[in-house]
Amino acid sequence: MTCEESEKTILYFYGELDGAAKDLARSHISACSSCSAQLAVLAEACRYLKEARMEPGLSLTEKTLELALNARPRGFFEVLAFDWRQTIEAVAFTVIVAAGFASMENKNAVWKSDIENRLDAMEYGIYQLQSDNTSMWQADFNHRYSDLESGITNEANWQANLTNSGEEV
């Protein structure tokens, strides 16, 4: 059966009472079998927990420290100073990539001029074709026009001849 004063006994056991409250608790415990038994149980349990505690290994401590330091938020310059190796690698990578782009730019110029040349040639060809077609069409037109013109002329001459022959009769 738990005594009504058990909570005060607990506070007394853990040293959280002082002055008059402490004296009162001490007096009560000495007169209460339930509270004194509770004290004995707590004392035994705490003694056991101290004996049975496990010591974390050195590896856990070192690993925790390493993880925690890496997780710490850092300023910009601190990042550069601490991660110097990574900084050098980053700069080297940037230089390599920039050089690569520079060389590709030249290749692009050559490639580009080749394409442009081909486009120019193609454009010229189309122009030539258009020009040829135009010439052909023009020539055809001229030819037909001259035919037509000849036809009209012949017709006119024939009409003229007809008129003249009619007057002679």
Binding site: S6, Q38, V41
Partner: peptide, 8 residues
Amino acid sequence: SRAAAVLR
């Protein structure tokens, strides 16, 4: 207090 009672 209840924990202590269980242990006891």
